[in-house]
Write a protein that binds this DNA or RNA. Structure first.
Lengths: 298, 298
DNA sequence: TAAAAATACTCCATAGGTATTTTAT
DNA sequence: ATAAAATACCTATGGAGTATTTTTA
C-alpha cells in the first residue's frame, strides 16, 4: 500500500478536527471512507496515528510528531503545483527575446504594451540587437525567441513568418518634380537616375538592395552611407538624395516631412518572422507572445 | 483530477530518463500507463511538461522549471514517511520515564541494559524521583510513564500492575537468637517485641507499615528513623534494631551481611506497576518499555 | 442511552494491462 | 522501415457509498 496525498490530507484534517465524522464532512466524504483511509495510512507507515475509541479520539505521540510534518508536506505540495500552474497561466513567468532594430523602433512599443496588458505578471526582457546576433542568441538559447528577417543559415532553428516587409522610396521636396508622374510600384528604375542615400554595407537591408540592384542590372549612385535609419532620413530631408527603406518606417519618415512612394513589392519584399529553437519547445509565455504577434501583425 | 504522488514520481522518472518506455520499465509499469499518467498530470496542472513527438522527447520550459521542485517534493515526502516509520519501529525515538528510588537501585540497571539492547536508537531519559512526584510527572505529561507503587489518587491515570512487592525483615547477628525458630511468614508479631529501625514518616513504605501495624493492633518500638534504605541497612547491621524492607532490596541487604526472613505476604504486599496517562496513548517507545517490564518482571 | 467509530457489503471509477495505430526520423 | 508515443479497449482493484454493528462515556 502506497501513501497518497489524499490520505495525508485526511490525516491532517482529522488531526485538526479530532473527529472522523467532522473531517469526513469538510472533505466531502462519508465517515467510513475516512475511517478506512486512515486505517490504510496507518498500515502503510507501520503504526497508529490516532488512539481512538468510539467516544474519544486523540493523536498518538507518533501522530503528534507527524502532524506538523504532514501539514508542511501538504503546503509544499500545493505551493509547488500552484507555482507550475502559474507558469502555464502566465500569472508568473519570464520571457527573454531579441528583436532587430528596425522592428524595435516601430512596432515593438505597442506590442510590449499589449503583451504586458495581457500578461502583467510575466517578466519581459527584450534585447535590441542586430538581426544576425538576434538569431544567434536564439541558437545559443540565450533568448527564447527573436523577431527578425529570415537569415540564410537557419540550421536548428524555426522561422515562422509573420508578414512581408515591403519597401518605400523616400525623398524631399528637392526631388518632388523628378519623381512626379513616376509610378515606382510599376517600375523602380527611375530611382537609379537619382543620387541615393543608403545604409552602410553591414546592414542587411543594404545587402538585399545591392543584390536586387545587381539582379536587375541597375547601378545605384550612392552619395552617402549611414548606419542608422534616422540618419538616413535626415540626409534625405536635406535633399542629398533619395532613400529606400522598409515600409515599417513610413511613420518615422513622414514625421520628418518626407515624401514617399511604395516600391514594386515583387521586386523587393522580405519576410519578418519569429525565430525559435528547433529543439527546445516554447514556454507558455513565449507562446503567448507568438500568438499576440500573429494576431496584431496580420 | 487530483495530482497524485505516483504521477509526480513518474514525471521525475520520465524527466530523468527522457523516455516513457524506459521510465515505465523502471517503475514496473507498461508504457501506455505512463503515457496516460503524464497526460493526466499535465491536465491537472494546466499545461504540457514534455514536448514529445514519437521520435523525440524533451522537457518544456515549465517542465524544466518544475523538475527540481518535483524531485525535492518526492524527497521530502519519502523522508517524512521514513521518519514516522522509524518512530514506530523504534529505530529512532525518545522515551521519558520516572521511577521511584527503591525500584531504580535494584531492578532498573538491568532493565535499562535490556531496553537499550533491544532499541539502541531510542533516547531513554529516566528520572529518579520519589513515588508521588513520579506519578505527578506523568499526570503533568512531563514523563510518558512511571514505575511506582499505586498511589491513592490516580484520577486520570492508568495503573498497570507488574508484580507485588512483598517485605522482608532484616537483622544482624545480634538478633539472630531472638528470631531463631520464629517463622515470620506465619506470624510477624514477634518482630514488634524487638527495637526497630524504620524509614522516616515521609516514606511511602513507612506509611504502609504504620497503617498495617495499626490494623493489627501492634506497637512498633522505633529506635531510629532514616531517609534512605542504605542507611537503614547500616543501622541494622550495627545491631541497633530490626528492619522491614521491600523484598526487592534483598540483594542489597545481603551484601551488607544481614540475615533476612520473609514476612507473611498476606499482611504486607503492594503492587508495583506502570503509571500512564489515561488520555494520552503510549508511544511505540513507551509500549516497548511496558512490554519489556511485563516480560522481565513476571 | 446516545454518539461516534468500525465493520459489512455493494458498486463503480479508474489505474493498469494488451493490442494496435500513428508519427517522425 | 523502425522506434517510440498515443490510442482503443478491456479488466480488476480498491475507493467510496449505504446500512449496520460495536463500543464507551
Amino acid at each position: 500500500m502506497n501513501v497518497t496525498v489524499k490520505q495525508i490530507k485526511l490525516f491532517v484534517e482529522v488531526a485538526r478536527s479530532l473527529s472522523f465524522a467532522r473531517a469526513a464532512e469538510t472533505m466531502h466524504l462519508s465517515q467510513p471512507a475516512v475511517s478506512l483511509a486512515i486505517q490504510n495510512l496507518e498500515q502503510a507507515i507501520g503504526g497508529k496515528l490516532f488512539a481512538r475509541s468510539t467516544r474519544s479520539l486523540e493523536l498518538t505521540p507518533e501522530g503528534q510528531a507527524f502532524y506538523p510534518t504532514a501539514a508542511r508536506l501538504l503546503n509544499d505540495w500545493n505551493e509547488a503545483l500552484e507555482d507550475v500552474n502559474n507558469l502555464f497561466t502566465m500569472q508568473r513567468g519570464k520571457l527573454n527575446m531579441a528583436v532587430m532594430p528596425s522592428f524595435s523602433t516601430n512596432v515593438l512599443p505597442d506590442l510590449v504594451r499589449q503583451y504586458h496588458e495581457q500578461y502583467p505578471q510575466v517578466n519581459l526582457s527584450i534585447q535590441n540587437i542586430v538581426m544576425d546576433d538576434a538569431i544567434e542568441s536564439v541558437r545559443k538559447s540565450r533568448n527564447e525567441l527573436a523577431i527578425s528577417f529570415a537569415s540564410e543559415n537557419m540550421n536548428g532553428l524555426n522561422f515562422t513568418p509573420l508578414y512581408d516587409v515591403t519597401f518605400i522610396a523616400v525623398y524631399s521636396d528637392h526631388f518632388l518634380s523628378a519623381l512626379e508622374g513616376v509610378n515606382l510600384t510599376q517600375d523602380w528604375s527611375p530611382l537609379f537616375d537619382l543620387p541615393m542615400v543608403a545604409m552602410d554595407k553591414d546592414s542587411t537591408v543594404r545587402r538585399w538592395l545591392d543584390e536586387t540592384t545587381l539582379q536587375h542590372e541597375l547601378q545605384s549612385q550612392i552619395v552617402a552611407e549611414v548606419n542608422q535609419l534616422d540618419s538616413l532620413g535626415q540626409l534625405v530631408s536635406m535633399g542629398l538624395g533619395v532613400g529606400i527603406v522598409p515600409s515599417l518606417c513610413a511613420d518615422q519618415m513622414q514625421q520628418m516631412g518626407l515624401h514617399m512612394q511604395k516600391i514594386n513589392a515583387d521586386i523587393l519584399r522580405r519576410p519578418v518572422g519569429v525565430v525559435t529553437h528547433n529543439q527546445s519547445p516554447l514556454s507558455s509565455a513565449g507562446q503567448g507572445m507568438v500568438e499576440l504577434l500573429k494576431k496584431s501583425l496580420s
